[in-house]
Amino acid sequence: MELTRHWRLHNQRYSLVGEQCDRCGARLFPPRDVCPECAEPAQELFTFSGRGQVYSYSTVYSAPEGYQEYAPYSVALVQLEEGPMVTAQLTDLGDDKPEIGMPVEMVTRRLRADGDQGVIVYGYKFRKHVKDII
């Protein structure tokens, strides 16, 4: 059972908290403390909007251990509107088929569960962007 490994990532998993580089302004997700663009420290927190678009997508039929009960499920590379790309599942698709360029928004969902007694891991998934309600 893995407890602290998932707990320590709650700001990233629940709120898409990343970082910003003081020097070159690059927005970073996941947070990594050293800017990959200019190799300077990047520890200022930055919370992403959760909006983006699908860069690519696929479907997992043959799932790894711990994910079989959810298969088949859609996975995607999502380009966030602030720049970085994230790997995540697509959810709440209904009858819609994913498309490259489809606008999406982040939601919090169950990622996996370790049986009846184990830890339930929650985190971000992305759904088709619903029009802003006025």
Binding site: H6, Y55, S58, S62, R112
Partner: peptide, 24 residues
């Protein structure tokens, strides 16, 4: 492990994400 595998992605799915984008 923290930012790819935890989302249930497999080696084949990763290959698929690259292949679909390449085709596009």
């Amino acid at each position: 492990a923290d930012y790819e595998s935890v989302h249930g992605i497999t080696a084949a799915a990763l290959g698929a994400l690259l292949m679909r984008r390449y085709m596009h």
